[in-house]
Amino acid sequence: MSVKQDGPRTLKVTYSIDGKVARENTFVLSSDGKTVKETDITPAPSPSTMSVTFHKS
């Protein structure tokens, strides 16, 4: 697993298995700091995408 900053409000989390990307999650913090939007991408051979919003608790 690696975490990379992809901008001032973006964290990109990559999960790899045997050197191949198994899943890539991007977390974007809203400008008011109240929500985080996650986008979850799983590449081939079983590609899928998921997005969801989190609220600060």
């Binding site: 964290l11 079983s46 998921m50 997005s51 969801v52 919003t53």
Partner: peptide, 21 residues
């Protein structure tokens, strides 16, 4: 840090495009 803390998932915003088999 504005990132730090707990974030509660809002299930009403969930969009899922799952795999095809």
């Amino acid at each position: 840090n504005p990132w730090n803390g707990s974030w509660k998932l809002d299930r009403s915003t969930l969009k899922y495009d799952g795999p095809t088999v």
